[in-house]
Simulated assay, not measured.
Amino acid sequence: MSSSGKIKFAIIGAGVIAPLHAGAIRAHPEAELVAVADSVKEKAQKLANEYGVPFVYEHIGQLLEQCEVDAVCVCLPSGLHGEAVIAAAEAGKHVLCEKPLDITLKSMDAMIAACRNHKVKLATVFQKRTTELAIRTRQAVQQGKLGKLVLGDAYLKYYRSPEYYRSADWRGTWEIDGGGALMNQGVHGVDIIRWIMGDVDSVFAYAAPLVRDIEVEDTAVAVVKYRNGAFGVIQGATSVNPGQEPRFEIHGEHGSIVYADSGIKLWKTADGEEPPVIAAAERRAEGSDNPHDISEDGHYMLLDDLIRAIREDREPLISGEEARKSVELILAIYESARTGKEVKLL
Rank of each mutant, 00 (worst) to 15 (best):
Q66N: 15
A123R: 09
L80A: 13
T104L: 07
G79C: 10
K99N: 00
E132L: 08
A89K: 03
A140W: 08
F126D: 00
C75Q: 11
D70N: 13
H94E: 03
P77E: 12
K93G: 03
E83M: 10
A88E: 00
A89S: 09
F126P: 07
A89N: 02
F126L: 11
A87V: 03
A114F: 00
E68N: 14
G61V: 07
G79T: 12
N117P: 00
I135K: 15
Q66Y: 09
A88S: 13
V85M: 00
H59W: 12
E83Q: 14
T137D: 02
S78M: 13
L122H: 11
C97D: 13
L64Q: 01
A87I: 05
Q62Y: 02
H81V: 14
A88M: 06
V95Q: 01
A123H: 10
I86S: 05
A110T: 11
I60S: 02
L80H: 15
L64R: 01
K121V: 04
L122S: 06
Q139N: 04
E65H: 12
C97Q: 10
A134P: 06
L101E: 11
A87W: 06
K121T: 05
C97M: 08
C115H: 05
H94F: 03
E65M: 09
K106Q: 14
V125E: 09
G79D: 12
G61S: 06
I103N: 05
S78E: 13
H94P: 04
G79P: 06
H94K: 04
A110P: 09
K106L: 13
D102Q: 08
T131G: 13
P100C: 08
Q127P: 09
G92C: 01
I86A: 02
K119W: 00
D102N: 13
D70P: 06
G92H: 02
V74T: 10
R129Q: 11
A114G: 01
I86W: 03
A89R: 03
V125T: 05
E98R: 02
S78Y: 15
A91T: 02
N117S: 12
I60K: 08
A84I: 14
L80G: 08
T104W: 07
A140C: 06
K106H: 15
K93S: 04
H59F: 14
I60L: 07
L101T: 14
R138P: 00
V120I: 11
E90Y: 04
L133P: 09
G79W: 06
N117M: 02
H94G: 01
L101Y: 05
Q66T: 14
L63K: 01
G82A: 13
C97T: 15
M111P: 10
D109C: 02
H81M: 05
V85P: 00
I112N: 03
P100N: 07
C67D: 15
I60V: 15
K93L: 03
C97V: 15
A87S: 09
R116L: 08
T130Y: 06
L133G: 13
L105Y: 07
H81P: 10
